Amino acid sequence: MPLRQLLLCGSIIVTIAMGIRHGFGLWQLPIITENGWSRETFSFALALQNLSWGFFGIFIGMIADRIGAYRVLIMGALCYALGLLGMAYTSTPLAFFLTTGCLIGLAQASTTYAVVYGVLGRNVSAEKRSWAMGIIAAAGSFGQFFMVPVENVLIDWFNWQNALVICAVLSLVIIVLARGLREPNYTGSHGAGQQSILQALTEAFTYRSFLLLVIGYFTCGFQVVFIGVHLPSYVKDFGMAPHVASIALALIGLFNIFGTYSVGLLGQKYQKRFILLSIYSLRAVAIILFITLPLSAMSVYIFAAVMGILWLSTVPMTNAIVAQIFGVQHFSMLSASVFCSHQIGSFFGVWLGGYLYDQYGNYDLVWYIAIALSIVSALVHIPMNEGPIKRAVMA
């Protein structure tokens, strides 16, 4: 498979899939106003979405390792379109949870990093893998930079429901792009003398360094989804215009293009665990300064730019460590397994944001939790061993 084709199609797929979801915070106030819901209701749906993404992702990873990414991506695109239509037209919390939560979560598990990275792992040499993963992660960042302002314009021009319908149509483009990730000669992860799924999972979840990655990724999910969903409401509570939040979310995407690509390059030269340690430490510093200094539009933009550099930078490093330790036979499944922790963190980040806001009228306690988690995650990467695991030669 030509590397250029793989990177181009994979990047656009992730741009669409990640770009659409990064703007969901823009729909919070229109949807809860239209339906008379609380912020907690909307937050719980997105929390369920992230949890579904993580849970379904493990099984989607197994399927992608077995049959390849092509058919998985087609199924994911169809689920994405149906889920967005449900998000637009459901009027009860239960239906909203099932479509916006479960169905879109399944779609995201089938159209984002674990599936695309599985193809990368099998078709890119270990020497270039960190760089290639950085490019795909940067594409997801470009999706946020490009799609958030577009979604804001769509909401203003066509109303919030029609904007979701347009996004549903856009998600179907993934079906066309999936052809660029077809692997005609791929025979799957099964075969004589190879690890079984159960053996691979047992090996990973009894290996200390994998568990340390799981802890770190929890923090990443908590922080990025809390900020992505609740930052628009946070700045509006301080009397700022809606465009401040839109610009901030776009800046996160813009600066993360450079952050993820740069981290991908650094991962080829330096130990990846120390890069992750630095990312989590800098996030803690950025949040402390943001909530303690006087808030203004400029401080929001600076915070967004700094967080953008650190936003998805954890993704190529974490996945590269997984491939480096365990190899690529069950890479999609193991990548999705560690990502499940990210999504559990996302669940708590977005849900606690809404719940604690309704309880106390502000987001202060959630910010403090995010800082504490950053410190813990920075520390757990110190004893990590990112070298290849030593296993007995299989018969």
Rank of each mutant, 00 (worst) to 15 (best):
G259V: 05
A305L: 09
F326P: 00
H342G: 04
V328C: 01
K269T: 10
A297V: 12
L289D: 12
A323T: 08
L334N: 02
A284K: 05
T318H: 08
S337A: 08
V285K: 02
L310K: 02
I321D: 01
L295I: 15
S262Y: 11
I287K: 02
A305M: 13
K269E: 10
L334F: 02
H342K: 03
V322R: 00
L295H: 10
V263F: 07
Y270H: 13
L310G: 03
W311Q: 04
S313A: 08
A284P: 04
S335A: 04
V285D: 05
S281G: 13
Q329A: 06
Q268T: 15
I302K: 06
V285P: 01
F326M: 04
L254P: 06
Y261H: 10
I287Y: 01
L251M: 11
G267H: 00
S281K: 07
I302N: 07
M307P: 08
L282P: 03
F303M: 09
A284D: 04
S337P: 02
M333L: 08
F290M: 09
L276Q: 01
L254M: 11
L289I: 15
S299K: 07
T292C: 14
I325P: 11
R273N: 15
S337Q: 02
R273H: 11
Q271S: 14
V338W: 01
A286W: 08
S296C: 11
T260P: 09
I252Y: 06
R283C: 06
I252L: 12
F258A: 11
K269Y: 13
A320V: 11
I257M: 14
A304W: 01
F274Y: 15
I302E: 03
A336K: 00
V263E: 09
I279L: 01
G267D: 04
P316K: 06
I252M: 10
A250G: 14
M333F: 04
A336V: 01
I257W: 10
Q324D: 15
G259P: 01
A297M: 15
L312W: 03
Q329C: 05
Q324M: 12
K269R: 13
S262C: 13
W311G: 03
A323C: 12
I325Q: 15
I309F: 15
N256P: 09
N256R: 12
A336C: 00
L295Q: 13
G308H: 03
Q324I: 11
L254W: 05
A323K: 03
A320D: 14
P294V: 09
L295A: 11
R283P: 08
F303E: 08
V263N: 07
I321S: 02
G308S: 02
Q271F: 14
T314E: 00
A286G: 10
Y270C: 09
H330R: 05
M307S: 10
A297W: 09
S278H: 08
Q329N: 07
F290Y: 12
V306A: 14
I325G: 09
V300W: 01
L277E: 13
G267M: 03
V315A: 07
A305W: 03
I287S: 00
T314Y: 01
I257A: 09
L266A: 14
A250S: 14
N256M: 12
L310H: 05
G267V: 02
L251T: 10
L293K: 10
C340Q: 00
A284Y: 06
I291N: 10
A305F: 07
V300E: 01
L266G: 12
V263A: 14
S313K: 07
F255M: 08
T292P: 12
A320M: 11
